[in-house]
């Protein structure tokens, strides 16, 4: 175990002890170990450096390393907690944990706010919402006129921007999602509750007996 960990630490910058990560997250020790197997696979798919770069993240999500997607880029940026252009193992597990059914609602609301605050200004601005709408229209088959897009933006800001200053702050966002709980559905991935049985496709090699977390 000690040998395994020191080797992992050498090969995977940002590797953290599964017991420690399990204590910080809703994942069990064996689930963190399973996530490490997944992490090893993704992080070696383009450059075998023990870290996930943006290209590898896109490849894992879309099976296409060149595909551009605004939301995938934004999720990558949020997973890249240290802002080094790569995701290390510890941040991978802690970031995925936000999507765990047992993660706190506050963490989910906070993450979703950051996800939509594209420029990181501390506000969700109208131009950012428009950018996201246009991005999703480009991705999907949906076609909406400029006038319709502006109508949707007007409706959104009349509901969410309570103080009518043209941007949504975190408190307004918290109140908005409490009135629209369906918006938080995308922040929970039910299968994270039991990843070792739901996703048997990735190799699982537990060397630690599970402890209650």
């Amino acid at each position: 175990m000690g040998c395994f960990q020191s080797k992992a630490r050498r090969q995977y910058p940002g590797y953290e002890d599964p017991v420690n990560l399990a204590s910080q997250t809703a994942f069990s020790v064996s689930e963190v170990e399973a996530l490490f197997e997944l992490f090893k696979s993704i992080s070696s798919s383009v450059v075998d450096d023990g870290l996930i770069n943006k290209e590898e993240f896109h490849l894992a999500l879309f099976k296409n390393r060149k595909r551009e997607n605004l939301f995938a880029n934004r999720i990558f940026d949020l997973f890249d907690v240290k802002q080094k252009g790569v995701i290390d193992f510890g941040d991978f597990v802690r970031s995925l944990n936000v999507f765990h059914p047992n993660a706190s609602h506050e963490d989910k609301v906070d993450f979703s706010f950051k996800l939509y605050d594209l420029d990181g200004t501390g506000f969700i601005e109208r131009k950012e919402v428009k950018q996201m709408l246009i991005a999703l229209l480009c991705e999907s088959e949906m076609r909406l006129s400029d006038e319709t897009i502006e109508m949707i933006l007007d409706k959104t800001f009349s509901e969410a921007d309570v103080n009518q200053d043209g941007k949504i702050d975190k408190l307004e966002w918290q109140e908005f999602v409490s009135r629209n709980p369906s918006l938080m559905k995308i922040m929970t991935l039910p299968y994270l509750r039991d990843i070792t049985t739901t996703f048997p496709s990735f190799v699982f090699n537990s060397e630690v007996e599970d402890i209650a977390t």
Binding site: S45, I75, E139, M142, Y191, T198, F199, S201
Partner: peptide, 26 residues
């Protein structure tokens, strides 16, 4: 439901072509 009857975030969360579950299909 017509898109114009929804707010932007409803549309975004409905249409977001991003499924993190694909990560586990690696």
């Amino acid at each position: 439901e017509q898109p114009t009857s929804m707010n932007a975030f409803e549309l975004i969360s409905m249409s977001q072509g991003l499924n993190l579950g694909n990560l586990f299909d690696h």
